[in-house]
Write a protein that binds this DNA or RNA. Structure first.
Lengths: 235, 235
DNA sequence: CGACGCCCTGTAAGAAATGACAGTTTCGCC
DNA sequence: GGCGAAACTGTCATTTCTTACAGGGCGTCG
């Protein structure tokens, strides 16, 4: 196992130029675990209303075309699960659940059995590793055998993919201690008056700090400033 | 390895009555991996200004007393790292870094070498598993050998601990689709007027939905409603 | 069909936030 | 001692939010 982990790190390190090259390596690694295809999706929390999504995949091109055409990225039950839960999902050709047409289409491209593992990062990015194959469902024994490796792979991919040039978040001027404090109480629903009482400063000074936060974070108002600070982990 | 994972799940499942009993099991498991002590900390995102923290530990009582007396929970570099990063930390008696008095005190209680692994959950809870021992630093070989197990343990503990009766989050009435939509645009910094234009509804209706969000989330105003919805993953 | 939930809309008054003006004080650093 | 960053304070006009009032339309489900 030791060598396996080491080798994975080296192989991924060599491919850290683009998401697609990383996914190619991932396909080789998961191929050795018995899967035909794999994909990796990384979702950033900003912009808040339309989060940025980066992905790479070795699924059949025809399926990918169909996937994009149907806008499945926003409806895919596996992606939904990754956003809502942390429990890995194993599916087989019997699965129907929500969105049956999605599963049916996937099967028509030979994607019958698979496994999805998600991970969460410091800055609230969410990563999703999926692997799939045409034949042979994932057995309980295989689950035992591979769960930790896939979890580790998902976790490691998350770290590597976050360093990709395209994916790196824009740097922003850091908040001062006071600014963070004032913004934190704002996030907790306190008004400028109340925060002034809590921190024993004038209302005017509270709004002054809040305005600096708004400027530094490139926000339109206090609400957006709080949102950005929260998802960036600044509070 | 398969048996190990299976056994861990059974042992943790038997102890799911309290954090302390879970940590006792965790100590047995990590003891077999060569460590003397372990602790687990779970931090919830709410309330925003003073997040709730749950923890269990098998470190010496004298050290725990000292730890609480010094309010190290809010200054401990390992906790700080867990909140800011996802990279496991291995430390030894040579480590000094920040807060040297903390490390020095820890050493005086026989906590010389250790390992800390953090994890993040769906609802933005952060978990931190630490293991430590008096003698023998963590070698590269041991790192290779145990990293995946500790990562899996941290991830699994996170799931089990989240189900503890004390830890479970209060249920709240779910937001309707429209409410979520309006709150999302608010989080993105749009005013009620702008959201009305975006969604082709009147300004009045926008504020109506926002008010429902505020009521459902038990918030004092829009800013807190957005904060809560964000950290609870409702957006 | 009636109850219920969700979505929608209006008016109006008071509270809070925003933006632009113009400063003083404190502290560490060179 | 000068210099810069951060914290701090003030007033004023305008915009936005919050809260309270009162109500209609639509679809589902029992």
């Amino acid at each position: 196992m030791a060598q396996w982990r080491e080798q994975c790190m080296v192989r991924l390190g060599d491919a850290r130029s683009s998401m697609q090259s990383l996914v190619q390596v991932l396909r080789d690694i998961t191929g050795e675990l018995g899967f035909d295809h794999c994909s990796y999706v990384l979702r950033q929390p900003l912009p808040i209303a339309q989060p940025a999504v980066y992905w790479g995949s070795t699924y059949p091109q025809a399926w990918l075309d169909r996937y994009m055409a149907q806008n499945y990225l926003e409806r895919d039950p596996l992606v939904q699960n990754a956003l809502a839960s942390d429990v890995p999902v194993v599916w087989s050709d019997r699965s129907v659940e929500r969105l049956p047409e999605f599963w049916e289409e996937a099967r028509s491209f030979g994607i019958n059995h698979g496994w999805a593992v998600s991970s969460r990062g410091r800055d609230h990015t969410v990563g999703l590793l999926t692997v799939a194959r045409e034949r042979v469902a994932v057995s309980a024994g295989e689950l035992e055998q591979s769960e930790m490796r896939l979890l580790w792979l998902a976790h490691t991919m998350h770290g590597v993919a976050s360093l990709l040039p395209d994916v790196a978040q824009p740097v922003m001027e850091p908040l001062s201690a006071r600014e963070r404090e004032v913004l934190l109480w704002s996030a907790a629903g306190k008004t400028a008056d109340e925060i002034g009482l809590i921190l024993a400063i004038s209302t005017r000074t509270v709004t002054f700090h809040i305005n600096r936060c708004i400027a530094k974070l490139g926000a339109a108002n206090k609400t957006e400033a709080v949102s950005k600070a929260l998802v960036l982990g600044l509070l």
